[in-house]
Design a protein around this nucleic acid. Structure first.
Lengths: 123, 123
DNA sequence: CTGAATCCACTCGGATACTG
DNA sequence: CAGTATCCGAGTGGATTCAG
């Protein structure tokens, strides 16, 4: 850490935050922490993700060393995705956020209603 | 918590994750936790954000009750943004992620190099 | 079953110009 | 100073089709 102006793109936090910010990445990570899964199983479980996105996100997660892909040469190919130890540590770092979400979502929604009310009143 | 299939959009985690995933939101939150700031000060500090995005993100953060906007009727208008107590709790929940980023970024980068190497070799 | 490739609509986000 | 409004290029992501 040099200048406090690590609020530039070179900040590691930024890079990780971008990953975490990914609409699906963390979700998949949390899912795989529960159980290893096959492609279509993930697809069905998440329900809302397109096959393109799933494929894409899985690849990037694998690239980051957060998820492991294991192909089994059965008759129709079987591919199993599982979380890596590194992925587990990230998932753990995400847990507080999960907890925060569950604890404070109501407050956030309330704040939104309040804000929208004032805004509409002003209009 | 009902079915484990809270991996739908109705999951609070998803909503918060979307916020956190925002390219700038968390960054601004962490900045404002250090010090309240005026608009242009934020703009200069972050360096890379457009005033459109800054304006937009600040508004949504205010809407969520995470940030407070205080306008002072001076000659040229002065507006100060500060973090709310709720915002502080969210920032705290993000800290583990920051730590993770700093601790494990190298591993992630290494994994990426490894992956890219194999990929290129295969091609 | 597990993807890759293509097409395309839509949104994000930057640059610019203008207002109070 | 603190924004808003408009334009527009680039990237995101869904639907569909093809392949191993």
């Amino acid at each position: 850490m040099k200048a406090p102006n690590a609020y530039s793109a070179d900040c590691p936090t930024r890079q990780i935050l971008d990953r975490v910010g990914d609409k699906w990445a963390v979700l998949i990570l949390l899912l795989l922490r529960e159980d290893p899964m096959r492609f279509n199983r993930l697809r069905r479980t998440i329900e809302g993700i397109s096959q393109k996105m799933l494929s894409q996100v899985l690849k990037s997660l694998e690239r980051d060393g957060l998820v492991r892909r294991r192909a089994i040469a059965t008759v129709p190919v079987t591919v199993e995705y599982s979380i890596t130890p590194l992925g587990v540590t990230l998932a753990k770092a995400v847990d507080p956020l999960r907890d925060w979400a569950e604890c404070h979502l109501k407050e956030v929604l309330a704040a939104q209603r309040r804000y929208d009310g004032q805004t509409k009143a002003a209009a």
